[in-house]
Design a protein around this nucleic acid. Structure first.
Lengths: 237, 237
DNA sequence: ATTACTAAAACCCGAGTAG
DNA sequence: TCTACTCGGGTTTTAGTAA
């Protein structure tokens, strides 16, 4: 790991100052700001803000031209790098998090999709298993839901292609490979998939899971049981 | 912006402690750690580490069970949220950064691709312009290159589909919509595209740009001139 | 207006140590 | 062993103020 040079305690406040400056800066990563203004942003005095800018300059995280009425600041590559390192580390942390959901009633809209012939064959081929013709609904809390949506945005979906029949048109359906297991028995896991139905009527924080067996029987589940999902990043290219 | 509750100065060190804990934690965001161990990780004393854990508990960023030989810590939703907020803010910062590249010699491998008939029609259709049959090469510095690769990973490429002829097979080519302009004359911008050739022989930090006009003439460029790229997130769905 | 110095106040850290 | 308290010392902050 090349990214393991963590910020030293004496630079915590400098790091946050750098962060605030980049947050307020233009797309060129430069800005004009007075020490009073920065002080307000950071909730510290003008004097402290001034010292922060001095420190940042010494760390070579910023460059500056101090003028009579403020200073022109631009963040250096080194500075950007500090932010980028943190970004990558946070991403790694969020990526490793397991998503926990609670088994909830209803077989869901998703079951309907699975049983449509035009889709079914593709599910079989592209997911690598013959899905049970119904889905398990999991209710996520707000945090897990946000993280799941974030993760989903970052990985390539398994695309089940839409098609037309005489009667109607069926759109693409996106799936995400996961492993599912009971929170209290994590060893017992099963390949499955999240069925991403584009904002249908049920609430955003309920997701539907496809798997080969009928999961309620397979894991002996009842409503309220907690299940754990682990997203699979590695889809075939 | 709902995310504007920034960390207060008195919590900087607590935030970093939370960050370190999540970095070291399992996928369940829990871990067993003694205050001495945490102290070593954070470069502070056992006493300070202990105080940090107390603070984190009071902030409700962690839950803990203190035992005789260490403590079992798990990060709460609230804690994860703190990390997630920072992650999102850093992502926004990195996303807004302009990529700066230096005009460099050579028309590049990419020009060859453009002129292939099977591709050309698609370039025309999918990029919205008839590309000049050659590319402008830009050399990126390490930081800009890292950020560009990161951004590229997050957005959907414009896919120019591969095809077969009698003689050989041509693979998919990925492009990314950008606006390009001279660093010193940012107003003068032009729709263009990054041609993402899968790791061909030229160095990773040189990218090739497609545009309708011959950019060297259009902008009156010479080698070493700095150009600015702004990635377009909004691809058609 | 600014930035940034000095000095006093406030805060934080870690040694010693109890439980 | 652990955690976590007290307290002295050191660091950081801010107020006052100069440039």
């Amino acid at each position: 790991m090349p990214n393991n040079t963590e910020i030293a305690p004496e630079n915590y406040s400098n790091w946050f100052a750098l962060y605030m400056l980049s947050k307020c800066s233009e797309d060129t990563l430069s800005l004009e700001i007075s020490s009073i203004e920065l002080g307000k942003l950071l909730n510290v005095s003008q004097q402290t803000a001034s010292r922060r800018l001095n420190d940042l300059e010494e760390l070579k995280w910023i460059k500056r031209e101090v003028g009579a009425k403020g200073q022109y600041i631009s963040i250096t590559d080194r500075g950007i790098n500090e932010l980028f390192k943190m970004y990558e580390n946070l991403r790694d942390i969020l990526e490793k998090i397991l998503i926990v959901g609670e088994v909830t009633e209803g077989m869901g809209e998703g079951g309907y999709y699975v049983s449509i012939k035009g889709y079914y064959k593709q599910f079989k081929e592209k997911l690598g298993f013959e899905p049970y013709k119904g889905t398990l609904n999991l209710k996520l809390n707000e945090t897990d839901n946000k993280i799941l949506r974030e993760l989903i945005n970052q990985i390539d979906p398994v695309v089940i292609e839409g098609f037309k029949t005489m009667e109607r048109e069926y759109g693409d359906v996106h799936c995400y490979d996961v492993y599912i297991s009971p929170l209290l028995n994590r060893k017992n896991k099963r390949k499955a998939a999240i069925l991403d139905i584009k904002r249908t009527h049920h609430k955003e924080n309920i997701i539907e899971i496809l798997a080969k067996p009928y999961l309620r029987d397979y894991f002996n589940l009842k409503d309220g049981d907690k299940m754990v999902l682990k997203l699979n990043r590695i889809n075939e290219c």
